[in-house]
Write a protein that binds this DNA or RNA. Structure first.
Lengths: 217, 217
DNA sequence: TAATTTATGTCAGTCGATGACAGATGACAA
DNA sequence: TTGTCATCTGTCATCGACTGACATAAATTA
C-alpha cells in the first residue's frame, strides 16, 4: 500500500476520532465542521471529501457494522435455519467487538454514547439498518428458496432486526452487557416462536394466507 | 373558534399541500423553503413559525398518525391481549384512512409517495416510529402489569412495529392494498408465534431467562 | 527529472434555520 | 367606535452545512 493511501487512512481515522471527541464533550449539534477540521489541521472542504455529511462521520462505524453483519450472515453454513443464521451472525459481530483492541473498542464506545444521546443520529442509524435490512431479506430469501418479495423472509428479518435493535438500549453500551441482553432477548424469542417457524413452508400446504384474522371489536 | 385560529389552520394546511405538491413534482431536496412560502404567498420566516424544519412539514401527517395509533391503543378494552390490542389499533387506523374524505386521502397518498422516494424522510419516519414505540411499550407494560424495562413488553411491541413497518412497502400506498398486506402479515405472525406468547407470565415460572441458547458454531 | 494523476486549500455561493426588531392584524373592553 | 393588548407576520442579519470551480501541492509513474 502506497504512502498516499496510508496518509488518507490516517486522516480519515483522525477525523473520526476528533469528531467523536468533540461530539461527546460539546454535543453533536454544537460541534461545527470547522472545529473538527481545525482539530485535524485540515481545511473544512477536505472534511467533505472524506465524509458526505456531518452525520456520515458519526455513523461511519455503524455503517461498517452493518456491512460486517451482512458478511457474517453470508458466511454462515447453509444448514442453519435463517433465523439461527441471523442470530449467529449477530453473535459473531459482538464477539469481534469484545475481541477488538483498545483503540477500536474506545472508538466504538464513544460512538455508541454519541449516537444514543442524539436523536438525529438515532434516526440516521435507523436509516442504515433499514437499508441493510433489504440485503438481509435477499440473503434469507435465497436460503429459503423463496422470493425476496414473499412475506416470510421479510417477517423473519423483521423479527430479527427488532430483537437486535431492542438490545441497543441507551444504557447498554458495554459489549459484554450487550451480549447478555441479546441472549436474554433471543431466549425470549425462542420461547415465543413456534418450532420451525423460520423453515421453508412445504409446497402445497401452509402457504395460503388468504383468511384474515377475525376482528372482534 | 375565532377568525385568527381559522386563518392559521388554513395557512398550515396550505403550506402542507404546497410542500407535498412541490416535493412530488420537483423532489424533496430540490424544493426550497422559499418556493413553498412563495406558493402560499407567505414569507419564508413564517414557514418556520408553523414547522420546525423542512422535514417537519413532510412528516406532519406521519406524526399525526403515530399519535392516533397510541390513542387507539389506549382505547382498546383491557380484555384484549397486548398484541391483539396493538393489531386492532392498527386496523382502526387503516379503517379511518379508508373512510377519510378525498382531501385527506389525497394528502395521505402524496405524503406516502414523497416519503418512500426520499431516504431522508424515510429516516425521519423511523425516528417518529421509534419515539412512539417507547410510549407503546409503556402502555403494553401497564396492560401486562409489568415494568416498561422488562423484555417482554419491549419484545411484543418490537414484533408489532416490525410487522407494521413491513406493510409500508414502497409500492404499497393504497390504503386498501395496505390493509390486505397487514392482514397477510398478521396471519403469518399468528402462525409463527406460540399461543399466549403475549400473555403475562405466571409468577414463579417462565420468568427466568438465564439459560442462553446454545451456540452451535 | 518530467509528466501525470490525485489530494488539498481557497473562494464564492446556495440553502436551511434562528434571533431581533418593527409593523400589521385580530381580540376584547370601555 | 375607539383604544389597548396580545399575537401574527415581514424584514434584516447571521450562522452553519454543504457544493462547485479553480489553482496549488504532493505522490506516482515513465
Amino acid at each position: 500500500m502506497g504512502l498516499r493511501e496510508r496518509k488518507k487512512q490516517r486522516t480519515r481515522d483522525a477525523l473520526i476520532d476528533a469528531a467523536l471527541d468533540l461530539f461527546l464533550t460539546r454535543g453533536y449539534e454544537a460541534t461545527t465542521i470547522d472545529q473538527i477540521a481545525a482539530e485535524v489541521e485540515v481545511s473544512p472542504r477536505t472534511f467533505f471529501r472524506y465524509f458526505a455529511s456531518k452525520e456520515d462521520v458519526a455513523l461511519s462505524l455503524t455503517a461498517d457494522e452493518q456491512r460486517m453483519l451482512l458478511a457474517e450472515l453470508a458466511s454462515r453454513p447453509e444448514s442453519e435455519s435463517p433465523f439461527t443464521a441471523l442470530c449467529q451472525a449477530m453473535r459473531s459481530l459482538l464477539k469481534m467487538l469484545r475481541e477488538a483492541d483498545d483503540t477500536e473498542a474506545g472508538r466504538y464506545l464513544r460512538c455508541q454514547k454519541v449516537v444514543h444521546s442524539t436523536p438525529a443520529l438515532l434516526a440516521g442509524t435507523m436509516r442504515l439498518v433499514k437499508e441493510n435490512e433489504r440485503k438481509l431479506v435477499a440473503e434469507v430469501a435465497r436460503r429459503l428458496g423463496a422470493d425476496p418479495c414473499d412475506l416470510q423472509p421479510q417477517f423473519i428479518v423483521a423479527v430479527f432486526v427488532s430483537v437486535a435493535l431492542a438490545c441497543f438500549d441507551e444504557r447498554t453500551q458495554d459489549p459484554a452487557v450487550l451480549a447478555r441482553r441479546l441472549e436474554d432477548l433471543l431466549a425470549l424469542a425462542e420461547r415465543s416462536l413456534c418450532p420451525g417457524w423460520d423453515q421453508p413452508v412445504r409446497s402445497g400446504a401452509g402457504e395460503r394466507v388468504s383468511a384474515p384474522a377475525p376482528a372482534p371489536g
